[in-house]
């Protein structure tokens, strides 16, 4: 069994006066892809935002790569190698595509940044064509590619993706999941939050189902895809 890269233990987060995450525990093993699925408002994004340091936990611990990072500021979490692609593909709109990518490597001091940039522009030719344009002028799909590419510039040990397919046309959703599988193939550990449960379960080695701030089920992606209750609750008969 692989070692645990990320261990979340009894994590609790308040959202205003509401406890949005009510003591959840899960493990992401090094090299694996783990997904959190659940309905809108189940606490998925709140969980990711707490791990990444955007929100402060009300209790519990987060251990990353053997270090207790509970309550760390977001920039320190990123510098440690745990990088989040936020929901809603938040690019730095007034900055150029190239500047967005450069700032993705903000925490790096090595000499291979230019090389990585060339590789990412090579992988996303649309971004290469628009490298000197403002990121805000890109289409939704291009912005999502930029947000993912920017996160990869940090050379993350663990990449957290928050609803990467949200609001995208089906053909772009397919692109996003294709990129996720490429990132997996390169050995990067992934924690994926998705509403598109079927695609997420197919991509994941292991999955947790979140309901009202607690984990109600877990299992391999393949096992949950067979689970009739999951199918009924999240996949729908139409899928």
């Amino acid at each position: 069994m692989a070692r645990a890269l990320l261990t979340v233990d009894n994590l609790q987060t308040n959202y205003g006066a509401i406890r949005a995450v009510k003591g959840i525990s899960f493990v992401v093993e090094a090299g694996a892809t783990v997904t959190l699925i659940g309905a809108n408002g189940a606490g998925k994004s709140t969980t990711l935002n707490t791990i990444s340091g955007l929100l402060k936990p009300a209790g519990g611990t987060v251990t990353f790569d053997g270090v207790d990072i509970t309550g760390w500021r977001a920039d320190r979490v990123t510098a440690a190698g745990l990088v989040q692609v936020p929901e809603g593909r938040e690019v730095l709109a007034p900055l150029t595509v190239a500047e967005n990518l450069e700032l993705g490597a903000y925490t790096r001091r090595d000499k291979e940044v230019a090389q990585d940039m060339a590789r990412i522009l090579d992988r996303f030719p649309r971004l290469a064509e628009r490298r000197d344009q403002q990121a805000g002028s890109l289409s939704g799909g291009e912005q999502q590619m930029l947000a993912i590419g920017r996160a990869l510039m940090a050379r993350p040990k663990l990449l957290m993706l928050d609803e990467p397919s949200m609001g995208l046309a089906p053909v772009l959703v397919r692109d996003v999941f294709e990129i996720i599988s490429e990132i997996q193939a390169q050995g990067t550990t992934i924690l994926l939050v998705e509403q598109n449960a079927k695609k997420a379960l197919r991509a994941a080695d292991y999955a947790y189902v979140l309901e009202h701030g607690v984990i109600t089920q877990e299992g391999t992606g393949a096992a949950l895809l067979q689970d009739t209750r999951i199918v009924a609750a999240y996949l729908g008969s139409g899928h």
């Binding site: 977001a74 920039d75 936020p86 938040e90």
Partner: peptide, 24 residues
């Protein structure tokens, strides 16, 4: 400059900047 670009990033969004590892 790296700091200048980070400054423009923070001007747009401190939240995104911190996720990029920028000490706001």
């Amino acid at each position: 400059s790296r700091s200048g670009k980070a400054m423009r990033a923070v001007a747009y969004s401190g939240r995104i900047s911190s996720l990029l590892g920028i000490d706001v």
